[in-house]
Design a protein around this nucleic acid. Structure first.
Lengths: 216, 216, 216, 216
DNA sequence: AATGAATGAGGTTTCATTCAT
DNA sequence: CATGAATGAAACCTCATTCAT
């Protein structure tokens, strides 16, 4: 909140900068050496702070990692936000290709972190606890944030209204399926984890399959 | 050497039984407590052996885990093996549904292990080393084992010959896309990791999307 | 950087004190229970710190042990440093007796550690690596440190100039031989390893043999 | 004892062969990988037997190692045995050079084992116990075996009688000093532990120093 | 707010020894 | 006699977390 005392502002500024450096350090270290080797020591070193400093900003390692995931997710959501508005313009295949391409590029950066959350039950438990606290604190109206599957489903429904997607398609499950394929491709065995982008040819085939289907 | 002395055979028997118990213990423990808590101590306890016994059968923990993955992969391959032969029988959607259903059920059991291999660079490095040794030992003709994407692509090509899949489909990338979607669904956020099966409704939607596509 | 903030100095102070306690603990434990039983646990206990503290100051056990050897070697070198300056004073036999006596006394304390370095190839390898790094970092001019054989050879050469040592003696090999005899005596089977001193009679015989020789 | 039943003889033959292979394996493994890595596993493998077989022949590892030392010491003693008989023949320096040369060559092979006995108190304790048992069993007359220092002292005394060694030399301590120098040279820092021989030049300098002394 | 030394529980791996075969 | 699988204690080392400075 702007307008606080200069002292407080300076303190906040410094703290925020440190927090940002820590969040970025988490992503960098996990990407570099893998989740099992992403120790507090390595993260502190990458952030240029002392190990103990982590615990001035986050109560424990799990909370720090979850904050890093949430922070990395923001641009992913932003990239999808304007997809529903494009219904009726260009081609369906073209719109999908562009949106999925952006999404894949961003996902690639935080994929190791998301996978880690799937492998480590401690992180999952902590996330559940934080979510519970958050919704308890924010009241019962906090649900319903826009997420990629919801936005994609909205887009498909809008295209149904334009007659460019068949009317009997269940847009919700279809959106889930399409994004699942995108996620699955990112995990494909041949993928080089260091490449930040997704092969455009692979993406084109995905769009071809889901738009035209297998049938003649 | 078949037909060795009974004594030698007995020794081999006991060792094999222990190895089997260890492989199963790896899967059980990873599924129960997660990869980061799947310690050698927990695995030995689950297998009913002493911790040191692990190292009489596997040189290190990574090799043990890779052996468990390979062992778990066998029934997965077997479940897909007869898919190409079914081309032209039943319906395309029906054949896909059955094959993907079996595959998903088996995958679900070993998914944590496969994810772990993606999270832990040590495992990946060890796998690369073992693969290199294996192909060096087996000569340059060892490649070309049947794998799920290859078998699914074979099936799609056979259906093309029957005219039940459109002729201009690139069967290889299509197979990869379909299996990627199946893998991605298994990782979907809402999925309960303890459930051993895949929601049949979700699978039906996947098959619907890929067979009929989005277009009207 | 001298004159840093008191805080930084204090931190350094504490760390140095811990390092000193660890180095002394290494010598004590090795002397007490022998090299094979000089475990990190025993050393930490003797130093009054937790086991993990060792690894905040030394990357591994071998480096710690080598540091202990180097630290123990300093007084040994100091004891020999002024020997060359005594050439021409007193008697040759008297000078040798005194210098070798001091040397033996100090050697006795660190002999188990030096022997350990001869028994354990891991230590030798680590020492070679550290030496390589040190000389690489310090540039090619780092060689030529004074060592006991060199100082003793200098002394003998100076006595040659005074005409108190025969002119045709090869001082370098002679110095090596004399010090080898001293080391060998410390290992003699009858020697009680717990005695911190060397039998003066034995030392006198050594000096007698090397000064006067066997011949009539 | 020859003349036992053929069966027993055969059994003894086989057992002795195994024992010999084990003793040699101990020396080889210690020389190759160092005492700390000379595990029962490595020794059994080098001897071509199973690990458990060791314990059919020796009650524990320490006893096996001590047997290996004793076995290796026999040729060392043999090499010195005829030295006293050479007094008065050739030159003193020549006789010493030859005897010390042979001794050094043999010593070099078992040096790692002897050093290990100095570093490991367990071995020393076991040796003390075995010695106590042996002398208890053999009666009080078992002492006085010929050993290198004793034989060298005998030789020097004989040369005194021939007038080729000065009469006021204390032959016992002199012998100890000379052999200590030889042992110390084998431990000299520059020595390549893999070289089975001793540098003849170094040995010549040793003989020169002890025969002629330092004085003009 | 930041530091970094210290902690101690716990991780993987090794190894001398035993015992059923 | 010989085997080798099994044992379990103990080794070295790591790491999230705390606390005096």
């Amino acid at each position: 909140m702007p307008g606080a005392t200069p002292t407080a502002r300076a303190a906040t500024r410094r703290g925020e900068a440190t927090r940002d450096r820590l969040l970025r350090a988490v992503r960098d270290v996990v990407a570099d050496v893998g989740y099992p080797h992403a120790t507090t020591r390595a993260i502190a070193e990458a952030a240029g702070v002392a190990e103990g400093t982590i615990y001035r900003h986050y109560p424990d390692k799990a909370t720090l990692f979850l904050a890093a995931v949430a922070d990395a997710n923001r641009p992913v959501l932003a990239a999808m936000a304007d997809l529903p508005g494009r219904a009726g313009t260009g081609t369906v295949a073209g719109n999908l290709t562009e949106a999925l391409g952006q999404l894949a590029q961003l996902r690639q950066q935080m994929l190791p972190l998301e996978l880690a959350m799937l492998t480590d039950p401690d992180l999952a438990a902590q996330r559940a606890r934080l979510h519970a606290e958050a919704s308890a604190g924010a009241g019962p109206s906090a649900a319903g944030l826009p997420d990629p599957p919801g936005l994609l489903a909205d887009y498909l429904a809008a295209e149904q209204a334009h007659g460019r997607v068949r009317a009997d398609l269940a847009v919700g499950p279809a959106a889930v399926t399409i994004l699942a394929a995108l996620l699955g491709l990112a995990l494909a065995p041949g993928t080089d984890p260091s490449s930040a982008t997704v092969d455009p040819g692979v993406l084109a085939h995905l769009v071809d399959v889901v738009t035209r289907g297998l049938q003649p």
